[in-house]
Computed example of a mutant assay.
Amino acid sequence: MGRKTEQNMRTYHRYLGFFLAGIMAVYAISGIVLTFRNTDFLKKEVQIEKKLGIGLEAEALGSALGKRGFKIEKQEGDIVYFKGGTYNKITGQSSYTEMKMPVILDNMNNLHKMHSGHPLYWLNIIFGIALLFFSVSAFWMFRPKTTIFKKGLYFALGGMLLTVILLFV
């Protein structure tokens, strides 16, 4: 590769890095927060009142509440008790508590976990391509004959080995 290609890659890498700095920070923060998603770390208790369909059975009730692994704890007359709340089969009224993240962290996590059904999923694809470009263009930051480039190759090899190990653990 010539000097011009090296210079262009450095320029693209630099300005794309500046442009995507904010979204990379969001992904970094939400990635750390998502590590603790099975705990109540940073979550606060929120009371929810919801009108649901009348006479729902266990499976339909869990689905209407959006709860995975939903289980009814007990039923007394028309009142159904489940973890953190109740449901009235006659009125359809449900009252329960949930642990929720602050709005900004919840939005960050939703952006991080976006899927193809979301209208903005293509932004995640573009961001993924940009990160792939960063990982490849980093090899054009220094000339191949320099010591720093050769040391960089050792670090890259170490990072690749660590990634392979993590994939099989």
Rank of each mutant, 00 (worst) to 15 (best):
I32K: 05
I32M: 09
L34P: 03
L34E: 10
L34G: 10
T35W: 12
T35C: 05
T35Q: 15
F36G: 03
F36L: 08
F36H: 04
D40I: 13
D40F: 11
D40G: 12
D40A: 13
F41A: 13
F41K: 08
L42I: 07
L42T: 06
K43M: 05
K43F: 02
K44M: 11
E45T: 11
E45P: 13
V46L: 09
V46E: 06
Q47D: 14
I48H: 04
E49Y: 06
E49V: 13
K50I: 05
K50E: 14
K50G: 06
K50A: 08
K51D: 14
K51Q: 15
K51F: 03
L52C: 05
G53P: 13
G53H: 09
I54N: 15
I54M: 12
I54E: 15
I54C: 10
L56S: 03
L56Q: 04
L61Q: 04
G62N: 04
A64C: 09
A64H: 06
L65V: 03
L65M: 04
L65C: 05
G66M: 00
K67G: 08
K67W: 05
K67T: 08
R68S: 13
G69Q: 05
F70A: 04
K71C: 01
K71G: 02
I72N: 02
I72S: 03
I72C: 01
I72Y: 06
E73A: 09
K74E: 10
K74Y: 04
K74V: 02
Q75L: 07
E76L: 00
E76H: 02
E76M: 00
G77K: 00
D78A: 09
V80L: 01
V80E: 00
V80M: 02
Y81N: 06
F82Y: 06
F82G: 02
K83V: 11
G84P: 00
G85K: 02
G85I: 00
G85V: 00
T86N: 01
Y87I: 00
Y87R: 01
N88C: 01
N88L: 02
T91K: 02
G92E: 08
S94Y: 06
S95T: 14
S95A: 14
S95W: 09
Y96E: 07
Y96V: 02
Y96W: 04
Y96H: 07
E98G: 05
E98P: 09
E98S: 12
M99C: 09
K100G: 05
M101W: 15
P102K: 10
P102G: 10
V103F: 13
V103W: 10
I104C: 11
I104F: 14
I104L: 14
L105C: 07
L105A: 03
L105E: 11
D106V: 08
